[in-house]
Write a protein that binds this DNA or RNA. Sequence first.
DNA 1: CCCGGGTATGAAAACGTTTTCATGATGACA
DNA 2: TGTCATCATGAAAACGTTTTCATACCCGGG
Lengths: 332, 332
Amino acid sequence: MTVGIKDVARVAGVSPATVSRVLGNGVVSDTLRAQVEAAVRETGYRPNLSARRLRSRHSQTIGLIVADIRNPFFTAVSRAVEDAAYRAGLRVILCNTDENPEKEAMYLRLMEEERVTGVIFAPTRRTVEQMAETSRSFPTVLIDRACQRSREDTVVLDNAAAAGVLVEHLYDRGYRRIAGLFGNASTTGIERHDGYRAAMARLGLPPAAVFIPPAAEAAEAELRRRTVDAGEALRRPEAIIASNGLLLMGVVRAAGETGLAIPGDLAVAGFDNERWTELVGPGITVIEQPVEAIGRAAMEMLLDRIDTPDAPVRKLVLNGRCIVRGSTAKRT
Amino acid sequence: MTVGIKDVARVAGVSPATVSRVLGNGVVSDTLRAQVEAAVRETGYRPNLSARRLRSRHSQTIGLIVADIRNPFFTAVSRAVEDAAYRAGLRVILCNTDENPEKEAMYLRLMEEERVTGVIFAPTRRTVEQMAETSRSFPTVLIDRACQRSREDTVVLDNAAAAGVLVEHLYDRGYRRIAGLFGNASTTGIERHDGYRAAMARLGLPPAAVFIPPAAEAAEAELRRRTVDAGEALRRPEAIIASNGLLLMGVVRAAGETGLAIPGDLAVAGFDNERWTELVGPGITVIEQPVEAIGRAAMEMLLDRIDTPDAPVRKLVLNGRCIVRGSTAKRT
DNA sequence: CCCGGGTATGAAAACGTTTTCATGATGACA
DNA sequence: TGTCATCATGAAAACGTTTTCATACCCGGG
């Protein structure tokens, strides 16, 4: 039925071993090589990757486990990872966890069963803490999220510094009552909150932060509670920082719906330079993450780790870039 | 080294066959089943999926080949496909072709080597035409793009109708000089252009359409050429239709940069209800595609096709929904 | 008490490769 | 000319499963 290496061998008049050597650049005489190549074309042979992986004992495959591919940050990173993997001759298995620790566990198990050579992983807070205890059969590089005592290679943003930059930028522009909305599912929310808090303290301002689920709706509800419902204009924030693209979108939408002008009634700044932030209203001031660099670096680290499993753990911290737009114009 | 089914069998005091039966819900007595399950836990056994796929001769895997996962349309569809596949116990291999026919060919070859049970594919114009001639070892469902004489199951939008709706909507709102920007890489551009052209003819208006590469930059350049550089206001379009999210973004950005007010100087409408279209300026009028339905339907069709390979070919045509926003307000 | 027919189990073959090992040919060198 | 590497090739084992086939067992009916 389906043509295998034996059929090719028969057609070429050689042994299966020789065909295998031609396919996998072993040493074969030119004459036989030509015969085999002709036979491959003639038979329309396609190697069976499952068999190949089983026998050769390496899968040439890595796993990429992220929260949700619909998040532009993860799509961009995943493209960078895939392109790098492709160049290295590796296949990528992409998994969406929806920030659900059970799905994370399930996919980690799947990675073992696929015998992947490595995994790039953006874990939830809960899972990142458990990772030290359980052991895995493959090297892992954490991206975007990690904690101090993670025993894996990581590549993350300098979240605290970036949040500080936003706070100071708002301060420079004349804003004082600066509120913060932070996601509660990942470590990035915590770190960005830390940076926010530290910067506010440095400037002698009282912090006003809240942790919410990473969804636009949550941000919308929270903003409504803080502004419209709050009533007294004095207590309202003059500016607000959102710790990721989703929350930022919620803030902007809520502002539009409740008739708050940006930045007249409320200055807005956030994380993730998504394409809409450039287009909406006066443009939204954001911290741009070096998404390509993150993906590339993660892949590089993983390859290094595969080469030298016992090298010391590396943590790469990249800096974000603050893109100033109209949403944080000087306070009048 | 790594624990296999034989090790489990030894620990459980049974034969490998029995272990296999326990794992794959064959018939096993309760006592032995319990012993095996204990042994599995004790040894930390993880099945080897390559071996399983090789022997059982089905990969439980489908391919999903799209142009670029960074395009929100494809991310949304791919999530829907993945979720449906996951429910059906199938794994998904995701591939980005960047609208490059060579990459398409390469990934189709890869799919054969992976012995996938089926593929969901959004092909370029060039490839869709060649598909009739070459044969593949797996059933294929085309999404988003297809042509009349495609011999595969397809699920697409009623592109011509949707474009007609936009034209008529603009006409109703008082616009007459309605230009069109269409992507030149996929069949959707052609079909949307056809619909545009037909609607313009029906209304007795002269069409003014152009095909450009599917990139925001191309749309930007084109719009500049048509408006700023054109000079004479009389020849400028009053409204413009963009045939996908990327082009639409280019138009909006160019309008912003050249100081054209939307819709005062230029009404704008397009395809793909991306999140930013709701937020930017007065909101952009768009055709929303039923992305979830497309993904789910494609998966369903593929499963049906796998079950009954000889059933007649099905073509599912879904309708878009026109979401009217401020960018096409009544002409003053 | 014997026979037929299900049923649970194990032994061994098979899946399509890569890899190891043996072998025969070739050539260099003494 | 004989010996010893070196080399290209083929035979066969191995990878970790599932599946087929045979077998031993149990039970009911004659």
